[in-house]
């Protein structure tokens, strides 16, 4: 009738799972004389620190003759460089070297792969973001304010008030009334232009050539206008 309580059932021992997994490990093969080899390693690590950072390595000690007096130091030297040696190979269990000190497991039967290509140089740091070549002003430029941007174009969304000035190395775009001064092509750029939605400027200048409000065609006042240089004179024309 009543089921036996679970605790009373004889528990099946859990199956022991064993799985295999293979990794590719860097194998460093120190050579004699150790000192020279370490110098080469240092030089490489300096060039490409990221390549070695926190990588487990295997040390192939075949090339390090049993007689090299520095051979026992190899583990300490690698550890000092931040390299974690997870195993050694290239020796026999009878090797004299192994009789002294503590060594990571001696591995054998690894499947050789090609020499790993060492990065010649550290990948260059990401280049700094390019200097902005345009400036956007999202509010009116009020009287007495001065916007100076010698590196490129200036775009203003809003008005440039009487008594304000905008100075740009490139062109000037005003999406609103231009009532103040606009000085484009500051660093000697005759290709620069001035655009505005409503032309009421006190002064326009491109590459050193200027015109004051008095010299501008009255018919263009209040209109959308662009200004550019044609030879040695400034031309103003309605945009539509």
């Amino acid at each position: 009738m009543s089921k036996p309580a679970p605790s009373q059932t004889s528990p099946n021992p859990p199956a022991l799972r064993v799985r295999g997994r293979s990794f590719i490990t860097l194998v460093l093969a120190p050579e004699s004389p150790l000192k020279t080899w370490l110098e080469t390693l240092d030089a490489q690590m300096k060039r490409s620190p990221a390549f070695f950072a926190e990588r487990p390595v295997l040390a192939d000690l075949a090339g390090l003759a049993d007689k090299d007096p520095d051979a026992p130091k190899i583990l300490a030297e690698l550890k000092a460089r931040g390299l974690t040696v997870i195993g050694i190979e290239g020796l026999t269990a009878e090797s004299k070297l192994l009789s002294k000190g503590f060594w990571p497991p001696l591995l054998a039967g690894g499947k050789p792969l090609n020499n790993v290509e060492l990065p010649p140089e550290e990948a260059p740091a990401p280049p700094p973001p390019p200097e902005p070549t345009a400036l956007l002003i999202n509010e009116p430029v009020r009287s007495g304010q001065s916007i100076v941007f010698p590196k490129g174009d200036v775009t203003i969304i809003g008005a440039v008030s009487s008594g304000a000035e905008v100075i740009a190395g490139g062109s000037i775009h005003v999406y609103g009334p231009l009532r103040g001064r606009a000085i484009a092509g500051l660093m000697g750029n005759p290709q620069a232009r001035i655009f505005c939605r409503k032309m009421e400027a006190e002064l326009l200048a491109i590459d050193g050539l200027y015109r004051t409000a008095d010299d501008m065609e009255q018919a263009l006042r209040g209109k959308p206008v662009q200004a550019w240089l044609q030879g040695d004179s400034m031309v103003l024309a309605a945009l539509d």
Binding site: E139, V141, R142, S143, G144, Q145, S161, S162, G163, A164
Partner: peptide, 17 residues
């Protein structure tokens, strides 16, 4: 009138900065 408006414009710029 224009001079008052221009001066006010200047003051508004200062209120913003």
């Amino acid at each position: 009138e224009v001079s008052s408006v221009r001066d006010s414009d200047r003051i508004i710029g200062m209120l913003d900065s």
